[in-house]
């Protein structure tokens, strides 16, 4: 059990070190030198948050709240994410990930990594669907269609 929890704590710290640099001092410290990492790594740290039992042996880290900043590149540009992590007896007791984006798009993007749902499309026959209207681009302008017909005719297609 102890081993497992230690492992959890290590995973959490590893995740954090990917995001930035854990500062050696306690509460309020801010690490500004940040590594460029994908956003998903912040997820793994929050997953690792609730570990409870204390590891044996002497303490590696001083108890307290640690803060770090990470940077990543989103489709909207460079984003910054803040991570706050509380250590007590070498275990993580709390993790908070705070979007610190300065552009409004980033805030939304960080809060909800996938806004949409993506899937491979399967077409269904319109005859089976009880719809009143169909929206698409099949009906195009008359002049355009005439011109395409003319080109086809000229080309003998």
């Amino acid at each position: 059990m102890i081993t497992r929890h230690q492992k959890t704590a290590v995973t959490a710290l590893a995740g954090l070190s990917l995001l930035g640099v854990v500062t050696g001092c306690s509460t309020g410290a801010d690490a500004s030198d940040a590594a460029s990492t994908p956003a998903a790594s912040s997820k793994s740290t929050s997953d690792a948050a609730p570990s409870t039992s204390a590891p044996a042996g002497s303490s590696e880290y001083k108890d307290g709240e640690y803060k770090a900043e990470g940077e990543y590149t989103s489709p909207g540009g460079k984003e910054t994410v803040g991570v706050s992590l509380t250590l007590a007896g070498d275990k993580v007791t709390a993790v908070t990930v705070t979007p610190e984006s300065t552009n409004p798009n980033g805030k939304k993007y960080q809060g909800e990594f996938a806004d949409g749902i993506a899937a491979e499309v399967v077409g269904k026959s319109l005859n089976e669907l009880k719809v009143s209207k169909v929206a698409g681009s099949s009906l195009t302008s008359g002049g355009f269609n005439d011109a395409v017909d003319k080109i086809k005719a000229d080309a003998g297609v």
């Binding site: 077409g123 269904k124 669907l129 719809v131 698409g136 099949s138």
Partner: peptide
């Protein structure tokens, strides 16, 4: 109003409603 989303490659089909 229920509207079918026309399949871009097949106007007899819809990709959604």
């Amino acid at each position: 109003l229920r509207v079918g989303l026309e399949h871009p490659f097949d106007p007899s089909k819809a990709i959604g409603v």
